[in-house]
């Protein structure tokens, strides 16, 4: 347990520079975006009012005002979030491969630590989870600040509604997925996410253990896991009406999720303890 915590800390520190860079990019892009978008929206509105000779009231009647949702759908806002997601997905691979790359085989060191090797597996997964949650928390912190800034930049009359954080999150499909409105949904989303991380980790370990052959195993493992997880959908989609109650379908998904996660951990443990190559 102690070494697990140390390893998690170690993994976090190893990525912290890139991670902070991601946070700063998000911060800058979103704040600059707020200013740029708010200004351009106001300019546009005034331009239209000038061209069509509309009063403020007439303009608002015809075109409506602005809300933060207008900004939340722009690349300024969504771009850095997408970047963070891609970066973390990529890091799910790199968190393993960086230990093997180059002539510095840090993997030697890690695998020879006097601790159960599965700790390495868990520490890497935990680090990924913490990075994800950290990004979400960061977004939750800066969102109200961006909102305040946005509202201060838009002339009072042009602000259609003043949105709060949860409304903003629900106004945007992408945000609705990464920060769902219910905590239970949050747990489900990230539970499924972590299941995928475990599946991915195990398939990486297949590759690290059996190399070329392992790539095939790894890909097959991912396909098998995804198919297994989605199998209720294939079976149920044949029927227009579902024989199962929704709580039963949920239970099936839950059990499948736990099963796939457990299988990934068990196989991962076997691979990293017995099969992995340096």
């Amino acid at each position: 347990m102690k070494s697990y915590i140390k390893l998690v800390n170690f993994e976090i520190n190893r990525f912290i520079k890139i991670y902070l860079t991601l946070l700063i990019i998000t911060l800058l892009s979103q704040f600059i975006g707020v200013i740029v978008i708010a200004k351009s929206k106001m300019d546009q509105a005034h331009e239209v009012m000038g061209e069509q000779n509309l009063s403020e009231q007439a303009y608002l009647h015809d075109y409506g005002g602005f809300t933060f949702a207008h900004f939340a759908s722009t690349l300024w806002f969504v771009g850095p979030i997408a970047l963070c997601i891609i970066a973390l997905l990529f890091y799910c691979l790199m968190i393993w491969y960086r230990d093997w790359f180059g002539k510095n085989t840090f993997a030697y060191r890690l695998l020879m630590l006097p601790t159960a090797r599965i700790s390495l597996y868990f520490s890497k997964a935990s680090a990924i989870l913490l990075f994800i949650i950290g990004l979400l928390a960061f977004q939750l912190i800066i969102l109200p600040l961006e909102n305040t800034l946005f509202e201060s930049l838009i002339q009072d009359n042009f602000l259609q509604t003043s949105m709060d954080v949860s409304s903003i999150l629900q106004s945007n499909v992408m945000l609705g997925i990464i920060l769902p409105p219910y905590f239970s949904d949050f747990l489900i989303s990230y539970g499924i996410g972590m299941m995928f991380v475990f599946v991915l980790f195990t398939s990486i370990l297949f590759e690290r253990s059996f190399r070329l052959k392992g790539i095939v195993f790894g890909i097959l493992y991912i396909i098998a896991a995804v198919l297994l997880y989605l199998s209720p959908l294939f079976i149920l989609s044949n029927e227009t009406y579902s024989v199962l109650y929704s709580e039963e379908i949920f239970a099936i998904f839950l059990v499948l999720g736990i099963l796939i996660t457990a299988a990934s951990i068990v196989i991962g443990n076997w691979l990293i303890s017995k099969r992995v190559l340096v």
Binding site: G102, N104, T105, Y108, R109, M112, P114, T115
Partner: peptide, 19 residues
């Protein structure tokens, strides 16, 4: 096993620490 890693040290001919 994890305990024997306190008993045996391996010194490979490559860097084993992060550069």
């Amino acid at each position: 096993n994890k305990n024997t890693y306190e008993k045996v040290a391996f010194i490979p001919d490559a860097i084993t620490m992060l550069p």
